[in-house]
Design a protein around this nucleic acid. Structure first.
Lengths: 206, 206
DNA sequence: TTTGCCGCTGAACGTACGTTCAGTGAACTG
DNA sequence: CAGTTCACTGAACGTACGTTCAGCGGCAAA
């Protein structure tokens, strides 16, 4: 009988989403240091006590918010770019989208890195963040495969390796931003990344 | 008369170093969340009150520790690799050293990213972390120039661009570790990075 | 209308931690 | 040896925040 979600379950999920959403907003707008139960309750328009009806404690709330945020990012990137776009534009759009995810969730990634506690084990395949990573890599690899089919990418290039390489470049670019090393705009970063990538895989040579 | 550091100045500096060092150890061993004045005092073998004789408050202490740690990293990397090594080994050693810096200061970088407050402005050339970045890039660029002189690197490659590219790859690799996305060992990461880099710049082609 | 249920509230509690400051003793001075 | 200085101490203070729980109000069943 518990096969289909009951009305109560839906309501519970709705509440939980409201709370994790408020948590995300506090982190994004005021930073991880300012994340207090009181502030979350304010933004969610509920009282402090209510939060403890849905989450065991603050750590549990943070964990849930991390998982939830990663799910959102996965969802956003899984919505494939319009396939009618030619290869270079699709790749450009994809890189831009991924950089945007890092940028708009900047405070979130900061918080995530701040404490080992909230991080996944890389060997735990079940973990949501590890899944995100694998899923992202496969999205990138697919686009590169298309590039090969269209003659844009050299056939001897391994799409999985190239995707890995590209994601490493994107992560590096984001990390430099997070560390305050770079003041490039997002648009500039996309073009730089494309240049690097093409110098390695394009049929046009360096 | 204040030209040469007085005995008092030296003692003061010694004390400050002891405190920032203890701070670094707390962050590295117990994480940023566990960083309390009490714990720092314990590790430094002084009392809580003493810390306030040398630092205005906790934020001031953290700032000082960040600056100090970056100075140490700069110093470690400025000690050039033995120039008698052939180009590929020098490059390999340099990449390994940089990855090591990110790895051994892992908790520190986490903490640094956790809060915007402790981060530099990318446009502030005076800032210690920005200097680190520029200095690192020039070290990498110099080695690549050597590679060109020795015929290992194609002459049309811009050493500064290539250094930038390489550092981006290294940052990306480190970020994937920080996010728990990767369980590669340091040695493996070095080899992967070298492959990527050479596919772009080597005279040997892809 | 009465009764019971239950999600929600927010005052209250306990604790942890940053910060202060009156006091201590060692070192120096005359 | 008495007086003065001064770096240092750690108990004490105030506050901020996570967590709890006795009570409230609205809804539904009887």
């Amino acid at each position: 009988m518990a096969q289909v979600p009951s009305k109560e379950d839906v309501l519970k999920q709705y509440r939980e989403d409201g709370i994790t959403d408020a948590t995300r907003r506090v982190i994004a707008q005021e930073g991880f240091a300012a994340l207090t139960i009181e502030r979350v309750a304010e933004l969610a328009n509920i009282s402090k006590g209510t939060i403890y009806l849905y989450f065991k404690n603050k750590d549990d709330l943070i964990q849930a918010t991390v998982t939830d945020t990663f799910r959102q990012i996965i969802a956003r990137l899984s919505v494939a770019q319009p396939p009618e776009l030619p290869f270079p534009e699709r790749l450009r759009a994809l890189i831009r989208l991924q950089l945007q995810q890092f940028e708009t969730n900047q405070a979130f990634f900061r918080a995530l890195m701040a404490d080992r506690r909230y991080l996944p084990q890389a060997d735990n395949q079940e973990d949501c963040t590890v899944q995100l990573h694998l899923q992202l890599l496969s999205i990138f690899a697919d686009v590169i495969r298309e590039g090969q089919a269209g003659g844009f990418v050299r056939p001897e290039v391994d799409p999985d390796e190239a995707a890995f390489f590209l994601f490493q470049l994107i992560s590096g670019s984001s990390m430099r931003h997070l560390l305050g090393f770079s003041n490039r705009t997002l648009g500039e970063s996309v073009e730089v990344l494309l240049t690097y990538l093409f110098s390695g895989i394009s049929t046009r040579g360096v």
